[in-house]
Each structure stands twice: as C-alpha cells, then as structure tokens.
Simulated assay, not measured.
Amino acid sequence: MRMTKVLAASLLVATVGTPALAGEKVSGADIAIPEAPEGTGQIVFFRPGGTGFALGCSVNENGEKISSLGAGRYFVLRTTPGRHEFTVKSEAKDVLALEVEEGETQFAKCKIKMGIMVGRPDLSPAKEDEFRGMKSVKLVDADDMGPAPGALRPEEMGVAATAEAAAE
C-alpha cells in the first residue's frame, strides 16, 4: 500500500509538477500548487506577460528581496499568518498589504504599467482564475530569489508536491 502511494506521488510529480520545475513554460492550469503546511499560509506571486516584458518586478518584504518576477514567471511564498506588506519599486513604489490566514493560498500579480522614464510595477491581489488562465508560465529560477525567507525554491516545489501526493 505504501509503495503504491509513493509510486502515485512520483507519477503525479512526473505528470503535473515536472514540466514547470524543469524550466519549461506550461499553462497555469497545469501547475501543481502544494497546500500550505500547518501553521502557515501562502501567496502565489505571478507576473503576466505584456507591457515591460524586459523589466523585472522585484517583490520585497521588510526591505528584503523575496524574488524577482520576469514576464510569465511565478513563485510561491510560505509565510506566517497575519498582516504582511510587500513592495515593488522602480521610478515609483507600490505597496500591497495582505492578511494571510493559516492554511489559505492567496494570489498576487505584478503588472508593469507605463511610467515617465521606465515602467512602473503595480502589485495587486489576484484571483486564482487569473493565474490558472495564463497560457505560458514558468517558476522563477533560484538565481532570481533574494535572501528573504519563505519563497519555495524550484527543488522545494518538487519535494512539496511529492510529499502532498504521498500523503493522499
């Protein structure tokens, strides 16, 4: 029985999680987002393509970089329940305050709007449907992540998806 669950978990990761982890772009509908562990909540930050595709959207909390989002990229941030403020900045600064509850998964998107000299990042709450509706999305690379804790690295996304499937 245990071997069957492990095999099923491996197959789940192979069929659902691997393409995004291997660096291939896939549809947002095909991304396996693991559940938030007990005592935490999580936020899926993503950036649709469009205006300012060459600019990064660096998401920060408490002055520390969590990760940069290029066009068509995403990352999952696990964090403690409570109020959190995230900032993005170029020629202008934008702040997004979210109340994170235990066990929930929220979504936030960063769009680049037209600015005077350079694009202006706009960080806002989003619906899961917006993320799932993306035709081409890719997990950020480990090099894009900053020193702030909580963002799941590519190898951790695979481990989380495997552990979740094994528990089912």
Rank of each mutant, 00 (worst) to 15 (best):
F75N: 05
K89N: 11
A54E: 14
K93V: 11
R83F: 07
R78Q: 15
N62I: 02
E99P: 04
G115C: 02
K111Q: 07
G49I: 05
A108Q: 05
H84S: 09
Y74C: 10
I116Q: 12
L96E: 06
G52Y: 11
G119F: 02
V100L: 15
A54I: 14
G119S: 01
R78Y: 11
G103P: 00
R83L: 12
I112C: 01
T79V: 09
G72Y: 00
G72D: 11
T87F: 06
F75I: 08
L55P: 09
E101Q: 11
G70K: 03
E99G: 05
K109R: 14
L96Q: 07
E91A: 10
E61Q: 14
T51S: 13
T79C: 12
R120E: 12
F45Y: 07
T87Q: 06
E64T: 04
F75D: 05
V88D: 01
A97R: 09
V59Y: 00
L96I: 09
S67N: 04
T87G: 10
V59L: 05
M117N: 03
A108P: 04
E102F: 12
L98H: 01
A97T: 15
E91I: 06
M114W: 13
T51C: 10
G103A: 08
E64Q: 14
V118H: 11
L55V: 08
M117H: 05
E61P: 06
A71N: 02
D122F: 06
K65H: 03
A71V: 06
G103K: 05
K111Y: 07
V76N: 03
M117W: 12
E61T: 12
G56W: 07
E85M: 08
